[in-house]
């Protein structure tokens, strides 16, 4: 189950962050997302470590913690997508697929002429599409 997704701008400014848990742990999840930004920077600035996945948008598993796994994705325009999941064995392919869909939803949202670049995404349609995507991810990998 995906518990949190976040979109972070190129200056590490939050553009969108949403948790999908019933428990009151939003703050904890935000903290995890915040920590993962350093891992993204490290990956991108140390090309040696990245190895074969050099310059790929999908960054893979950023770091595992006790209960969560954090995945990252960096677009060409230096926008980061961070995803926190409780599932411990997720296929990279599924994750890639999710991020690709998520990216296209994001692109649709920022192509809105009323969206101001660099500001938070307030579109309701975006929020709805993201939550549908998150829900469908949970059900497809459980099945």
């Amino acid at each position: 189950m995906i518990v949190c997704v976040a979109v972070v701008g190129h200056q590490n400014n939050p553009l969108y962050i949403q948790s999908f848990t019933d428990a009151d742990d939003a703050l904890k999840l935000h903290h995890i997302v915040h920590c993962s930004l350093d891992v993204v920077d490290e990956r991108v600035n140390n090309p040696k470590k990245a190895g074969p996945t050099l310059n790929e948008t999908f960054l893979g598993l950023l770091y595992p913690s006790e209960n969560f796994k954090v995945y990252g994705y960096l677009t060409n325009t230096k926008v980061k997508f961070i995803l926190v999941t409780t599932e411990l064995d997720v296929k990279d392919g599924d994750m890639r697929n999710f991020f690709r869909k998520f990216h296209s939803v994001y692109v649709d949202a920022v192509s809105n002429p009323f969206h101001v670049p660099g500001k938070k995404i307030t579109s309701k349609t975006f929020a709805e599409r993201v939550s549908t995507l998150v829900k469908s991810f949970g059900s497809s990998s459980a099945a």
Partner: peptide, 12 residues
């Protein structure tokens, strides 16, 4: 540019 760079690796 956001849309057209969607499916390509990052630029070196």
């Amino acid at each position: 540019s956001e849309r057209y760079t969607m499916d390509r690796p990052r630029f070196g």
